[in-house]
Design a protein around this nucleic acid. Structure first.
Length: 1070
RNA sequence: GCCCGGGUGGUGGAAUGGUAGACACGCAGGACUUAAAAUCCUGUGGCUGUAGAGGCCGUACGGGUUCGAGUCCCGUCCCGGGCACCA
C-alpha cells in the first residue's frame, strides 16, 4: 500500500483512498479518468497566475470555430501536441500559459439562424457547450478561467476599440510607424500634405496649408479618410441577388453560387478597408525574425508580392505624344529588349495598328476573345501573337522595336505591356524564335542562347550602352538614375498586396463602432463601447439590399447622449471573421480586464506566443492579418513585440478514411445468373443465348436455351407490366417463360444452388409460365468489393457507408442492418463470409460519413490511449488519414505499463523500494534522454515508442522499483495525464503529478563496458564483433582483421585502409 | 510554367553521413484456456540457399561526392500543397 497522504487540504480530494479497496487492479480508464478530471477541476490544477517567479512559456492553439457538427478526431491532434508540450514545460519549471477559447462569430451560425430563426448567440452557446464537453473528455490542461469568445461583448468591446485606434492613425513612412491623425492635421495646417511622407490613397491630391485650412470640417474629414488605417471605400464584391447576400470567392463556382446555383454579379459596394499595404514592407521583413515554417513565409511573401523594378516609358515611332509604360523587374536587360508585347485588350492597340496589319490584328483579337481563361492559361507552350505594324523607341539607345500583341500578356496585370528580352526570358525567347525576332545577348555569362533563354544575373554586360562592363549590382542604379534624370521613368516598388476589405454584409459579427453624419463616418465615444449587436427580426438583408443590421429598430447613435438630440445611423456592416482572431492571443493574458484589452503588466510578463500550432490553411488570412494588427499595436506601444508568435508549427490535417459499399443495379443480376447458375446447364441444354430480336428497345428475353424451349427473364417482382409484356411475347414465340425475380436472387444470393434448383425444375416442368408466388423479402443487394471484378463495373452504384459500421474495411453486418440504407438489403459475401468495403482518403466531413468522433474512441480505449494514439500516428506536421488500426498497440502499452505497478498477487500494487540494477537504470535513463530530446523537437510519435521500449525492457527485467518507475510516471504525465496521476498518487504523493519535476538523465548509466561493433567491408556490413567501449584504434583494427569473415574478404591481401569511428563502426577497405 | 514539401516492408512510421526498416499494426506459428477474450513467446523487406550457415538485391529512377549515402550534390519521374503568364 502506498503511504497515505498527510497533506491536509488535499486529503479529502485524494480519490485513491476510495478505490484502493477494490479487489481488481486491472487498468480501467473508465474508472480513473473521470475521477482525476474531477479532482483537477476541484483543485484548480490548471489555474495559472500572472504573478509568479517562474520563467514563462506561452503555448497557443488556433482556437476553433464551434460548428454544429462538433469536434472530430482531426481537431485534437494539435491540441494534444501542445498539451504535451505545455505539461512538459510545466514539469521543467516554467509557468505555462496554455489557453483555449472560441472563434465564435461566423457564417454557419448565421446560416442556421436564417433557416430556423434561432438567434446565433443561442446556437453558438450550445455548440460551445458541446465542444467543451468533448475537449474536457480528452483531459487537456487548459485554464478555462481564461477562456475567450470573440462573440462575447466583453471581448469584442476591445476588437472595436482596436478598430478605433486604427481609424485614428495614419502610417508615417519617415517615422516608419503608425502615428495619430492629430499629428497629420497639425502638419497639414502648417505645411500642407506635401510635407508628409505617409501611406495614402493613390488619388490623393496635393494640398497646401492654405487649401487645407480653407476646407470645411466635412471636407477635411473626407480628406483624412485617404490616410486613416481603416477607411470606408468601395470594392467589388460577389453579389448574389437570389440569396440576398455577398459571397466569398470560394462560394462562387463557375459564375454562379455554389449553394443553389444562382447568378452572381460583380457589384461595387461601400466597404471598410484596412490599409494593410502601409505595412507591406514590415510584414515582409518581419518574416526574417520569426521561426515559422518556410512554406508559410513563402506564401506570405508571394501574397505581399513585392517586386522592385522600374517603370519605363517608351515613345512610339510616328505617334507624337503616345507613350507606352512598362514595369520591369529586370531593367538591367533593357538593351536586350528587341520587341514589345501588349495585351490584346491594351487601349493603344487599335490606335497603333497600321492599315496593312489591321486585318491580322483584328482576327487575332477575335480569336483571343473566343478562348477561355483556362485555355489562355493552360497552353503555355503554344506561341501566338500578331504584329501591330508599329514601332516603339527604346529610350536608352533609340532603337526601333516592333510592337506585337499576344495573349500571354494580361491587361489586368501591371500596365498590360511588356518589354520583351528574349535572351533572358524564356517566354520571350520562344516568342522571338517563333516569329524570327532578334535575340541579343546582354551578359557575357549567358550561355546556350541558341537553345533557350538564360536569365542569369552573373557576369558583365555586353551590347548594353551605358552599362557595358558593369555587374548587375552596378547596372541597376546607373540605369535608374539615367531614367530619372531624363524623366523617362523611375525606380518603383510594386506590391501585389491590396488593402483588406473589412466589411461584411452580415449579422453575426462585431458591429463597427462608427456612425454616419453627412456622409462622413465618425467613431462613437469610447465610453459607449461595446457597441452591442442589436436584435433584429430576420437575419437577412433588407428589401433594399441593406445589410441585416439596417433592420434594427431605433438603432441610432446620439453622440452627446442627450435627450431629443439628433441621432445618427450606425454603420450597418459588421466586421469579418478575422477581426477577433487578429488579437485574441493577448486577451488570454488578461481575460477579465475591463479597462484594457490587456494590461501592460500582463503583456510584459507573457510577452509573445512562444509556440503557436495550427493549420496551414490560415497561411495568408489569419496569420498575415494578425501580424498586421500586432505591428500596429506595437507602434502604439501597447504590446512588447512586433511579431506576436515567435515560433509557428503547422499541424497536418487528419483526413477521413471513407468506406464504400456497392449496390447492385438490374444488369448485375443477369450477369450473376449467367456466371453462377446457368453455366452447369449449358452442356445439357445448349449454350445460353440472348434472343436477337428486340422488343420495344430491349432484348426479347434475358436468356434462352439453344436446345430447350425455356426462356428466362430477370426482373423485379414490382415490374408487373414488363412481366406481362414478356409473357405475351413468349406465348407468341411458343416459348415457355420463367420469371426470376431479382429480389428472389437477392434472398438466396449466397446460395446459388437454390436458384439452380429452381432452374432445373423449370427445365423439367411443362408449365408455360413459371414464377414465384411468394413475395421476396429483400429489395436491394450489396456486393462485396472483393467480388466486383467478376462483373461489369457499371452494374453497381458506389455509396458512402458510415465508417461506424465498418471494422478494418469489413462491414459489420449486424450493425449495418440497423441503418436505414440497409433496411431491406441483402449482402453478397466473399468466400470468407465477409463483406469487404472499398475505401478512399478524403476530407473528413459529415456528408461523406467518415467523421470519427473522439468521444467514441475515448469511451472505448480511454482518453490517455486516444491522446497517445493520435501522437503515435506520425509526425504532427504530416497529413494522414485517420485509421484506428494500430490503436490496440497503444492500448496494450498502457495496460502493460500499468502492470509494472500491479504485478503482485491478484494484481496488487507491488512497487518496492529496492535498489535498481544497472540494466534497469540504463532502460530508464535511455528513455529520459530520448523522450526529453524528442519532446523538445515536437517528435511525439517517437516519444511514445520510447515509452514502449522502456516498458518492454522493464517487464523483461521484472522491475517494480520506485526509483525506476516514479520518473517514468512523471515523464508519462504529459502524454497520459490520467494514468500518470493515478499511479503518482498510488506511489504515495498527495499533490498533482503536474507539479513534479521532470527527470534528467545521467550519462553514467548509459555507459556500457562493451559495444557490438559492426564490421564493414567496403562500407557493407559483413560481421559484428563485441569490443570494449573504449577500445583503442589499434586493438579495434586488430580484432576486426582477425575475424574469419574479414580474412575471407581480404583473401590474403593487406587492407588498403581501415576506418575506425569510436563507438560507431569499423570499415575495412579492401 | 514557377515556388515549397514529399517518395523507405503488406500498413503507420524509425534512422546527428556510420549495423536501413526502431516502435506498433497486420499476418503466421506456438503457450495458457472446455472455448473465447486477455496475456505471453517465436517468426516476419525481397530473391537465393546447403535453409538457425552463406550469398545477392533493396529507401522512386539515373549519375556523382565519400572509406561509407535513405541522409549531401546534379539530372529525371511521380505524388501532395501553394501561386497563376507578377513582366
Amino acid at each position: 500500500m502506498p503511504p497515505q497522504s498527510r497533506q491536509g487540504g488535499c486529503f479529502f480530494h485524494n480519490p485513491v483512498n476510495k478505490s484502493t479497496n477494490q479487489h481488481s487492479m486491472e487498468y480501467r480508464p473508465s474508472d480513473i479518468e473521470p475521477k482525476w478530471r474531477k479532482w483537477w477541476r476541484e483543485n484548480q490544477t490548471y489555474r495559472i497566475d500572472n504573478r509568479n517567479g517562474k520563467p514563462k512559456f506561452y503555448v497557443l492553439d488556433m482556437f476553433p470555430y464551434p460548428s454544429g457538427a462538433g469536434l472530430h478526431v482531426g481537431h485534437p491532434l494539435g491540441y494534444i501536441a501542445t498539451d504535451i508540450l505545455s505539461r512538459y514545460k510545466r514539469l521543467r519549471g516554467f509557468s505555462v500559459l496554455h489557453p483555449m477559447g472560441f472563434d465564435s462569430f461566423g457564417l454557419p451560425a448565421e446560416q442556421y439562424a436564417i433557416q430556423t430563426g434561432i438567434h446565433p448567440a443561442i446556437s453558438t452557446e450550445q455548440n460551445i457547450v458541446r465542444y467543451r464537453e468533448q475537449l474536457d473528455n480528452i483531459g487537456f490542461s487548459y485554464d478555462w478561467e481564461r477562456e475567450v469568445r470573440t462573440s462575447d461583448p466583453r471581448f469584442y468591446k476591445w476588437t472595436q476599440w482596436i478598430f478605433m485606434q486604427l481609424f485614428n492613425c495614419y502610417y508615417d513612412r519617415d517615422a516608419d510607424k503608425a502615428l495619430p491623425i492629430s499629428h497629420l492635421t497639425e502638419i497639414f495646417s502648417k505645411k500642407g500634405n506635401k510635407a508628409v511622407n505617409a501611406s495614402c490613397d493613390d488619388d490623393t491630391p496635393v494640398v497646401s496649408a492654405e487649401e487645407w485650412n480653407a476646407m470645411s470640417e466635412r471636407e477635411q474629414q473626407l480628406f483624412l479618410l485617404k490616410y486613416r488605417l481603416t477607411y470606408p471605400g468601395e470594392a467589388y464584391v460577389n453579389w448574389c441577388p437570389a440569396l440576398g447576400s455577398v459571397l466569398s470567392n470560394d462560394e462562387v463556382k463557375d459564375g454562379v453560387s455554389e449553394r443553389g446555383g444562382h447568378p452572381v454579379e460583380r457589384k461595387l459596394m461601400k466597404q471598410w478597408n484596412m490599409r494593410i499595404t502601409a505595412y507591406a514592407d514590415r510584414l515582409l521583413d518581419g518574416l526574417e525574425a520569426i521561426d515559422w515554417p518556410e512554406s508559410i513565409k513563402e506564401q506570405q511573401r508571394n501574397w505581399i508580392g513585392r517586386s522592385a523594378g522600374a517603370s519605363v516609358r517608351f515613345a512610339v515611332d510616328g505617334h507624337e505624344g503616345v507613350e507606352i509604360e512598362v514595369f520591369t523587374t529586370r531593367l538591367d536587360t533593357i538593351y536586350g529588349a528587341t520587341f514589345m508585347v501588349l495585351a490584346p485588350e491594351h487601349e493603344l492597340v487599335s490606335r497603333l495598328t497600321t492599315d496593312e496589319q489591321r486585318q491580322e490584328i483584328d482576327s487575332y483579337i477575335k480569336w483571343t476573345a473566343s478562348r477561355s481563361e483556362v485555355e489562355r492559361m493552360s497552353e503555355v507552350k503554344k506561341v501566338t501573337g500578331a504584329f501591330t505594324g508599329a514601332f516603339a523607341i527604346n529610350p536608352f539607345n533609340g532603337e526601333r522595336i516592333q510592337i506585337w500583341i499576344a495573349d500571354y500578356v494580361l491587361a489586368g496585370y501591371g500596365t498590360g505591356a511588356v518589354m520583351a528580352v528574349p535572351s533572358g526570358d524564356q517566354r520571350d525567347w520562344l516568342f522571338a524564335t517563333h516569329f524570327d525576332l532578334p535575340i541579343i545577348p546582354i551578359l557575357d555569362a549567358q550561355e546556350g542562347l541558341e537553345n533557350a533563354a538564360d536569365p542569369t544575373k552573373e557576369g558583365r554586360y555586353i551590347n548594353s550602352g551605358i552599362i557595358n562592363g558593369m555587374t548587375y549590382a552596378e547596372a541597376v542604379p546607373t540605369l535608374i538614375q539615367w531614367l530619372e534624370e531624363r524623366a523617362l521613368g523611375k525606380g518603383k516598388i510594386q506590391y501585389k498586396l491590396r488593402d483588406a476589405v473589412f466589411s461584411r454584409q452580415r449579422y453575426w459579427g462585431e458591429p463597427v463602432p462608427a456612425y454616419w453624419k453627412d456622409g462622413v463616418p465618425h467613431l462613437i465615444d469610447e465610453r459607449d463601447l461595446p457597441l452591442v449587436l442589436p436584435n433584429i427580426d430576420k437575419y437577412l438583408p433588407t428589401e433594399t439590399g441593406e445589410p441585416p443590421l439596417a433592420r434594427a429598430e431605433n438603432w441610432r447613435y446620439a453622440p452627446l447622449n442627450g435627450e431629443g438630440e439628433e441621432r445618427y445611423e450606425y454603420e450597418h456592416s459588421t466586421m469579418p471573421g478575422w477581426a477577433g482572431s487578429s488579437w485574441y492571443f493577448y486577451r488570454y493574458m488578461d481575460p477579465h480586464n475591463e479597462d484594457a484589452f490587456c494590461s501592460k503588466e500582463a503583456s510584459d510578463y507573457w510577452q509573445q506566443v512562444d509556440f503557436y500550432l495550427g493549420g496551414s490553411e490560415h497561411a495568408v488570412g489569419h496569420l498575415l492579418y494578425s501580424r498586421f494588427w500586432n505591428h500596429f499595436l506595437h507602434d502604439l506601444g501597447l504590446v512588447p513585440h512586433r511579431e506576436f508568435a515567435k515560433k509557428l508549427v503547422n499541424q497536418g490535417m487528419i483526413q477521413g478514411r471513407s468506406n464504400f459499399v456497392f449496390r447492385a443495379k438490374e444488369s448485375f443480376f443477369e450477369q450473376y445468373l449467367h456466371l453462377k447458375v446457368l453455366k452447369p446447364f449449358f452442356a445439357e441444354h445448349g449454350p445460353m443465348r440472348i434472343a436477337k430480336t428486340e422488343v420495344e428497345g430491349s432484348f426479347k428475353y434475358d436468356f434462352a436455351f439453344g436446345t430447350n424451349d425455356l426462356a428466362i427473364e430477370v426482373t423485379s417482382w414490382k415490374q408487373e407490366e414488363k412481366i406481362e409484356r414478356v409473357r405475351k411475347t413468349a406465348h407468341g414465340d411458343g416459348k415457355r417463360l420463367m420469371v426470376l425475380y431479382s429480389e428472389t436472387l437477392i434472398d438466396h444470393i449466397n446460395e446459388p444452388e437454390a436458384i439452380a434448383e429452381k432452374v432445373r425444375q423449370a427445365l423439367e416442368s411443362r408449365e408455360n409460365f413459371i414464377a414465384d408466388l411468394e413475395r421476396p423479402v429483400c429489395e436491394q443487394l450489396f456486393v462485396s468489393q472483393s467480388l466486383l471484378y467478376k462483373y461489369h463495373p457499371d452494374s453497381f452504384t458506389k455509396l458512402h457507408v458510415d465508417v461506424g459500421v465498418v471494422e478494418a474495411d469489413v462491414l459489420n453486418l449486424e450493425k449495418a442492418r440497423r441503418l436505414p440504407m440497409f433496411e431491406k438489403a441483402n449482402f453478397k459475401l466473399d468466400p470468407d463470409k465477409k463483406y469487404i468495403c472499398a475505401w478512399e482518403v478524403e476530407k473528413m466531413s459529415k456528408s461523406k460519413y467518415n467523421v470519427v468522433n473522439p468521444d467514441d474512441v475515448v469511451a472505448e480505449y480511454g482518453a490517455d490511449c486516444f491522446r497517445m494514439f493520435e501522437m503515435f500516428l506520425g509526425p504532427i506536421t504530416d497529413a494522414k488519414p485517420w485509421n484506428t488500426q494500430g490503436i490496440t498497440g497503444v492500448s496494450g502499452f498502457l495496460k502493460k505499463f500499468w502492470r509494472l505497478f500491479f504485478s503482485g498477487k491478484d494484481g496488487a500494487f507491488s512497487v518496492t523500494e529496492d535498489t535498481p540494477t544497472a540494466e534497469e537504470l540504463r532502460a530508464l535513463h535511455h528513455c529520459i534522454k530520448k523522450v526529453t530530446d524528442d519532446v523538445e523537437r515536437m517528435s511525439m510519435n517517437t516519444c511514445v515508442s520510447h515509452f514502449m521500449i522502456a516498458t518492454n525492457d522493464l517487464h523483461r527485467l521484472n522491475c517494480a522499483k520506485r526509483t525506476i518507475l516514479e520518473p517514468l510516471v512523471v515523464m508519462l504525465a504529459p502524454f497520459g495525464p490520467h494514468i500518470a496521476e493515478e499511479l503518482w498518487h498510488r506511489l504515495g504523493h498527495a499533490t498533482t503529478v503536474c507539479d513534479a519535476t521532470w527527470p534528467t538523465h545521467n550519462e553514467e548509466y548509459l555507459k556500457s563496458d562493451t559495444k557490438e561493433y559492426p564490421i564493414q567491408i567496403n562500407g557493407k556490413l559483413r560481421a559484428t564483433v563485441t569490443l570494449p567501449t573504449d577500445v583503442s584504434k589499434e586493438d579495434a583494427e586488430k580484432a576486426a582483421l582477425a575475424l574469419e569473415q574479414v580474412q575471407k574478404w581480404l583473401d590474403g591481401q593487406a587492407p588498403k585502409k581501415v576506418v575506425f569511428v569510436p563507438g560507431r563502426m569499423i570499415n575495412v577497405v579492401v
